[in-house]
Simulated assay, not measured.
Amino acid sequence: MSRQQAHKEQALVKMLRYVLGVAPAEFGLLPDEAGWVSVKELLAALHQEEGWRHLRQGMLADAANRLAPELIELADNRLRCAQRSYPPPDYEAQPPAHLYLGARRKAWPVMHKRGLEAGPGGRPWLLAADPDRALSLGRRRDPEPMLVTVQAQPAAEQGAAFAAWGEYFLCEWAPAACLMGPPVEEAPPAKKPVAKAPPAKEAGPALPPPGTLPGSFILTAEDVEKPYKRKGISKDIAWKRERRKGRKRG
């Protein structure tokens, strides 16, 4: 192994030790109670750091399985450091008047109606005191996040709790009335579908004018009422026919 490769591997272990064991809040990460951080969140955070955009999931697995298995643990697509020294959240800290969240575009209409709600397992939201920092966190989930402002004091008066986490604040719930963000366009009521008329049948070939086909003739009203008056048709009367037969027998 070259010195350059050995140096890169040592730097990776050192970085993971610092991010997962010393200062996860500095990178906008919130480990669970057992210290675990999802691989996806860890990669998203480190990809925003200069010099670590090349980091891949396989390199994290190599750090846990080969480079420092006694220090870095990997299980169920989560990583943690066996030696952790970061402080717990501070629920005594007072938040500033305004906190900020970089929300996903699809999530903001829901927040606008229901407010902030804890994620799976009661996971709190990570709010920043600086709009740019909030948008930087939001870009990990959406390339164009929406900036949402949380009015901390009115929210606290309605029961919201805030805990300092490094330069961030944790919040599990905040009422919708205390959130400010871009206007939400309400979708117009759905229109009933209009039944389409069946397509018109294509007309067949045009017939030639009457009397133009060979052997055809035009039938008139006189032909219908007195057909025997037509030229070449004799009137056949029953009593005349019997009289002719009698003459022949006589």
Rank of each mutant, 00 (worst) to 15 (best):
A68T: 05
P154W: 01
E9Q: 15
E186N: 08
K240F: 12
R3Q: 10
P189C: 05
P89S: 09
P209K: 15
A163M: 08
G211S: 06
P24S: 10
S234W: 04
V148T: 08
E50Y: 07
A221I: 07
A23W: 03
D76V: 02
L55A: 04
V37G: 01
R17F: 02
P198A: 03
A128F: 01
R17L: 06
R3P: 01
P188M: 11
L42N: 02
S216E: 15
G122W: 04
K231S: 05
M146E: 09
K226N: 11
R247S: 10
Q151D: 12
E144I: 07
G138K: 00
P87H: 01
A152Q: 00
L99I: 02
Q83T: 14
D32M: 05
F27D: 00
L67V: 07
L46N: 02
I218H: 09
A25W: 11
G115E: 09
D90I: 03
A107R: 08
A190S: 13
D236Y: 05
A82G: 06
G250P: 05
P182G: 06
D62L: 12
V150N: 00
Q83E: 15
Q5A: 15
I72L: 14
L30W: 09
D32T: 10
Q94E: 14
H98R: 12
T220I: 13
L207C: 12
W125G: 01
E185F: 04
P109W: 07
A163Y: 03
D76S: 09
A129P: 09
A238D: 08
W165R: 00
G159D: 12
Y86C: 06
